[in-house]
Design a protein around this nucleic acid. Structure first.
Lengths: 345, 345
DNA sequence: TTGAAAGCGGTACCAA
DNA sequence: TTGGTACCGCTTTCAA
């Protein structure tokens, strides 16, 4: 009776999508045979295979991934958890992860969190959907990380770290990157430094700041330091604070990411009428695309995103195959990218 | 005995995750009762419910969304197909869509396409995963759109259009937006115009160009026109071509999106040493965040992303509930955003 | 190589 | 309100 109503438009009645059983019927084989055709490494006679594929094509049959996941216990889905998609750096990471997971025949179940507080809700869904694993570029508490272990869902952290809990991680070397930047600035004779840090709860932000401070300390320099939130406004506001803190006498500003560096450049020019880099050098971190724009030509350290996502996907798939692999941290050096925003030695 | 094994280390061997059956056993009720507890609108006695929930918590039980989707034929997943995540505008859209779908209890299965040619492969996966619907910000051929209909998967296009095939769509009014921009430029006395268009196969790019051309034609003006690819480089290259085409005599440049407008500004300043807007006015379209940066202060039309994603999600969910709803196009006016990149009348 | 049959973990109808 | 039971669509033994 349902069919009758639908009978009119588009395609009379064909509401139900064809199943392997329908294909079997049409091909004159058993349903098992159909299943084997769509599964690699099953023994099936070429002739049978041909019959089945023809029938499948005729019916427009596509194996139901949900159903097969139910029995194989492999959904071929991976959760990607990202907390700040609006941060310019992450879209690139997401696009890259997506491409690479796709190449592995794995689908991306996206959790784009508006704020870190949403993690718990997201994780509930992660368990429910029986993803094969997860890649997280969001802050996960020790308890949350333990939940991954409890549910036996392998997880790889991206530029984050497992506090208390040891977990597979891929990251870019913040310390080394900052060292490169500060080295260059020191060599050029800069002495009065300012540092704009990142969010309190960001491990990489802290590391970047510490990296810069450590190198400066070696040179006997104590910079002015202020916080930020990784966005453009923070760069603007941060520079203002630094200028105040240092009586407008600054040689160089080290920003914990590119976006803030760009904001700082804008502020240096617009608010203080400074020439960057002649009167003030500014450096960032990440290597996002706007950093290369002519207005900024940011001196920065570019994260090797492709290699990092390669590693993240590889580490994850390894652990999907063998959940008992030990945790591992893979750290990639960033590449120093000299630009026009800093005088370098 | 299961428990015993778990008792040891981490979780010796006990791979199997608890099922509703395990919960039923522990709670001393039937498996059906457990199912009802996790389903809204099922009749269940408060006492039973409490028992079940306690048992569930103890075992760390989470209903298997994959399994329930199999029988209900609702996966509670929606495919989001986006072709150019690196384009600055889309991350914002994606974040917004994700938040809103999430609020509807719907998961996002992401298909981030590196190039338009990947659509077919993506669609195959879309069918296999039995998503409840799809939102596409990628170019879909008439044939591809018909496949959605054939598979009875509702789809909503985002700033794209169904060629030949009529389909639910949400978009920003390109014609009207360009009219606002050109009106302002004309009123300020600009007469020599250049236009940088978008990708050939982009409908919105064409519409934006046509919108600008139409308004200019009314004023008896024929601008220099060149193509672009919606990225920063295209803006730079586009401006160069326009300058050549017009013997370096341009009053204003209309760009089909913000990213190209930013590129054009960079080129105007760096390559031609022009003051923007004193010597050259430049306008864009979209209202991406870098447009607001001090270096650009782009005069543009901002797409009402939140309202558009609201509409897209609403339209989709309506069609998931009732697949026979007729196609509908919802067009939103952009908001004119005067900036410092153009002299306006 | 093939088909029959037993699940996978839920949902939903039905009778009690 | 409850439990029993027949699926959902596929994979995977196991015999034949």
């Amino acid at each position: 009776m349902t069919k009758q109503v639908q009978a009119e438009p588009e395609h009379a009645g064909r509401a139900r999508r064809p199943t392997s059983y329908d294909v079997a019927l049409l091909a004159g084989v058993s349903q098992s045979a159909v299943s084997r055709c769509f599964r690699t490494g099953s023994s099936i006679a070429p002739a049978t295979r041909a019959k089945v594929l023809r029938a499948a094509r005729e019916l427009g049959y596509q194996p139901n991934a949900i159903a097969s996941g139910l029995i194989t216990k492999r959904s071929n889905m991976v959760a990607v958890i990202i907390s700040n998609l609006t941060n310019l750096y992450y879209p690139e990471v997401l696009a890259s992860l997506s491409a690479k997971l796709d190449a592995q025949g794995v689908r991306v179940l996206l959790f784009a969190l508006a704020n870190e507080g949403d993690v718990d809700a997201a994780l509930d869904q992660v368990w429910r959907y029986r993803v094969d694993g997860a890649i997280a570029a969001a802050r996960l508490s020790p308890d949350q990380l333990r939940r991954f272990a409890r549910h036996r869902v392998p997880v790889v952290l991206y530029n984050r770290f497992g506090e208390e809990v040891s977990v597979a991680t891929v990251c870019c070397d913040s310390i080394g990157g900052e060292r490169l930047l500060v080295d260059g600035l020191l060599a050029a004779g800069h002495r009065r430094f300012g540092v704009i840090g990142g969010p309190e709860d960001s491990y990489v932000a802290r590391q970047r700041v510490e990296g810069a401070l450590a190198r400066l300390a070696e040179a006997g320099i104590t910079p002015a330091v202020t916080g930020g939130a990784f966005d453009h406004d923070s760069g603007v506001a941060g520079l203002r604070r630094l200028m105040t803190m240092s009586d407008n006498r600054l040689d160089a500003v080290v920003c914990a990411n590119d976006l803030m560096a760009i904001g700082a450049i804008d502020a240096a020019r617009e608010v203080y009428g400074l020439n960057v880099p002649r009167q003030l050098s500014i450096v960032g971190f990440d290597g996002v695309s706007p950093a290369a724009w002519a207005s900024y030509r940011l001196t920065t350290v570019r994260q090797p995103v492709e290699r990092m996502t390669d590693a993240a996907v590889a580490m994850l798939m390894e652990r999907v195959a063998d959940p008992d692999l030990p945790p591992e941290v893979r750290t990639f050096a960033g590449t120093f990218q000299p630009g026009g925003s800093a005088r370098l030695g």
